[in-house]
């Protein structure tokens, strides 16, 4: 019996380690794959997309809502001394500017119903500044949502989106 003790211990340790490692790595792996998929679908770095209305034929993210206008911007703050300038144009109904890091966490959301919103995104480790948000990871996604449950309002949201900005610059 004692000769099985070592292998059994190795089995238990490997099971626990693989379990924890899988859970730890899964969000980052899924986010990386999603970022790659978004890039392949034309979501550029440091520029908001001009979105199509979400339909079964155009959907690219799981559980997207067909009632919302989604504009995406991928960011990469790994180059030293760079910051991201962001602006969400005015929209008379619900809209929000949401920030997701490389681990899928929604680390900030700014609501802008009826008004425009401007903010800067700083790289990880930056000191807090007024009018700025510090990203927990160098890469991530920024998402504007606008309530637009029909074709006419979606078209109007697209017009409002012309005032959106996602631009990398030297600090």
């Amino acid at each position: 019996m004692r000769r099985w003790l070592g292998p059994l211990l190795a089995l238990a340790l490997c099971t626990a380690a693989a379990h924890v490692l899988t859970l730890y790595l899964t969000p980052g792996v899924i986010m990386n794959r999603a970022m790659d998929a978004l890039a392949q679908r034309g979501v550029a770095l440091h520029r908001f997309t001009t979105p199509e209305r979400v339909t079964p034929q155009t959907q690219s993210i799981v559980r997207s809502s067909p009632d919302l206008y989604y504009a995406l911007c991928r960011y990469d703050l790994s180059k030293l001394g760079t910051v991201l300038d962001l602006r969400m144009g005015a929209w008379p109904d619900y809209q929000s500017l949401a920030f997701f890091d490389g681990q899928t966490d929604n680390f900030a959301t700014l609501r802008g119903t009826g008004k425009a919103v401007s903010v800067r995104l700083l790289p990880p480790g930056s000191a807090a500044q007024p009018g700025a948000i510090v990203s927990p990871t160098t890469k991530g996604v920024i998402l504007i949502r606008r309530l637009a449950p029909d074709a006419a309002r979606f078209a109007a949201a697209g017009e409002a989106g012309k005032a959106d900005l996602c631009r990398l610059r030297e600090a």
Partner: peptide, 26 residues
Amino acid sequence: IGSKTADPYTRARVARHGLLALAKTE
């Protein structure tokens, strides 16, 4: 959902089934 306080199982599941979901206050 969407926050760092989610347990690792929820984080993994939401990453797959609810990517880019907002935190509960929104």
